[in-house]
Amino acid sequence: MTPDALGIVEARNRLGTLVARAVHGHQVTRITRSADERAVLISEADYEELLRARHELEAARVAAAVAAHERGEREMMTYDSKAALYAALDLPASGDGERS
């Protein structure tokens, strides 16, 4: 556990304060349950901003792929599914907790 991370029990005990810090102070809290189970508490506004940034990055990658195709630098491909397209463009799988 890193010094700035809280265990899940301590986070549960301080949840009201942690939520207030996230919402009003935009402070991030890392929470650990085990070495493999970690989460981050952020405000909804910060989460929405992250989603917007992710969407912009994905759109830029798709636009770059289209431009490369138009310049003859990328072959036109067809895909059996949206998941296969995302994988080919090295994008995170669609529908993993974000809005469309």
Rank of each mutant, 00 (worst) to 15 (best):
D4F: 13
V66H: 01
L51D: 06
H69Y: 05
R74P: 00
E49P: 08
L85Q: 07
P3Q: 04
M1W: 14
V62R: 09
T17S: 14
T32W: 15
D80P: 12
L18H: 07
A53V: 04
A83P: 04
R21H: 15
I42F: 04
S34E: 01
M77K: 13
L57H: 14
R33I: 15
D80M: 04
R71Q: 06
R52Q: 13
L91I: 04
A65L: 00
E75P: 00
A64C: 03
G7E: 00
Y79Q: 08
E37D: 15
L6Q: 00
T78I: 07
I42R: 07
D96R: 14
D96I: 08
V9A: 11
Y86L: 13
D46F: 03
A39M: 09
A63F: 02
V66L: 08
Y79H: 10
R71W: 05
V23I: 10
I42D: 02
A93P: 08
R52E: 15
A53S: 07
V62G: 03
H55I: 06
G25R: 14
R54P: 01
V19Y: 04
E48H: 06
S94L: 12
T78V: 10
L18N: 08
A64T: 04
A63H: 05
L57G: 09
L15Q: 07
A83W: 10
G97K: 09
R12Q: 13
P3D: 05
I8G: 02
E48P: 01
A20S: 10
A87M: 07
A59I: 08
E58D: 12
A87H: 09
R61Q: 13
A11W: 05
G16M: 04
R52V: 11
